[in-house]
Design a protein around this nucleic acid. Structure first.
Lengths: 227, 227
DNA sequence: TCCGGGTTCAAACGACCGTTCGTCTCGACC
DNA sequence: GGTCGAGACGAACGGTCGTTTGAACCCGGA
């Protein structure tokens, strides 16, 4: 009941990219169209008819392949969240290896921030997935809310690493500051970027992902290490 | 077109609290019921029938008094956001007076963080309004999104104060860090609190608003003053 | 007393929703 | 060649939605 966010198998669903008439291509097309539309307009503002029209498939395909619209949302969410958590865990693992099991705060935060920012890089083509995850986290169904609240196992490792890196901080303080850091990581809505751009009179560049990562790390590291 | 968030008149709408049959009591009841239900379940998950049932009024009241469901949402949003911005501006003004026009970073951030946290205090009874604002910011209509993006005049004063307080930082850095700080202020969902509570094994107390404010200020101040 | 504007009310309208049904196509297998 | 099951398809079902309608109601002013 607590591992909803770590899918069991890779399931190369993205096989729809090859040219021919793949069997199960319909399912992949529905998956991709739904993720895109949910990310763009939100779950409630996208109808099953919108999805099937965008995918160029029959209306009944969603219920046939996924069971229901809710189940479709949850399956996309589960897959993308699993990928994100796995990338973060891998980076934390690498930092542990590099530093003999005691990486500094900055490298732990790097493992949290880098994966979603790398997805958001225009070079990669996963901006839709980031946007989808952020939307699903705040607008998702009760099932998603439950999964988010129960599945904290992947966060526990980060909390432990941070406690080790900051022995002078009480555990309570570590948890709160991890909470603030996660809020930063999941708050990068494009809407908010536009607002910042408008506020600063066009001073901030939006496409500079590497620069943004450095800015986020500078801020979060200093905040985490505050007296 | 840029001042949608600062309503022109106080309009003592909360007069529904007095016992008698007030004229215009229906409008106030609809307003209160809608704010409560929107904050609890989200805009799209609450129907006009839910609102009027909760308020104990006729179904047509929403359209009669507010024009449409969308307009009702926007009116609540405009009122609450206006109140919030006014409280923040007042606190910034007081800090300016205390410090001869050059308040330190911590007091500027205090003016940003304190109002929503004071509302969230169980002692006051405005937790619903905070929750509503947060929800409306992320799930709101296109009209709300436009208003949020266009109305940055109240933020400009905070940006100016922060630039004065931190002359060693480039304006670009100040804007980005203000962006991070605002993300913290608007990210205090109760959902996330529950998750933190679960992650820490019950270590964090949720009702301690004063303690939370200090924690947020410690983190944000250090982050803002990072090298 | 009658009038008229402001407000409430029950009822319905038309649109859209997620889902289901029965049928048809088509390729694999006996 | 015949059978079978998975999948695609058009069409419809039942329900809920926001909104509108037109009549009833209330009450202060002529």
């Amino acid at each position: 009941m607590s591992d909803h966010l770590t899918p069991e198998a890779p399931e190369a669903l993205d096989a729809s990219l090859e040219g021919g008439e793949d069997p199960a291509a319909t399912k992949a097309q529905v998956f991709a169209a739904a993720e895109r539309l949910f990310a763009l307009h939100g779950f409630q503002n996208v109808s099953v008819r919108d999805i099937t029209a965008e995918a160029g498939v029959n209306l009944a395909s969603v219920n046939y392949h996924f069971g229901s619209k809710d189940a479709l949302l949850f399956e996309i969410f589960r897959r993308r969240t699993g990928e994100l958590n796995r990338e973060r865990a891998r980076m934390l693992h690498e930092a542990n290896d590099r530093r003999g099991g005691n990486p500094p705060v900055r490298e732990i935060l790097e493992a949290l921030f880098t994966p979603p920012l790398r997805w958001a890089d225009p070079a990669h083509d996963r901006r839709v997935s980031v946007q989808f995850i952020i939307r699903a986290r705040s607008e998702g169904t009760e099932e998603i809310r439950q999964a988010l609240q129960n599945d904290v196992s992947h966060l526990a490792r980060f909390a432990e690493a941070l406690k080790t890196a900051c022995p002078e901080l009480t555990p309570e303080t570590v948890y709160w500051r991890l909470h603030f850091v996660l809020g930063m990581a999941h708050n990068n809505r494009f809407m908010e970027f536009d607002r910042l751009h408008h506020l600063s009179g066009g001073l901030t560049r939006e496409g500079d992902v590497a620069g943004l990562l450095k800015r986020m790390l500078d801020f979060a590291e200093a905040g985490f290490l505050a007296a």
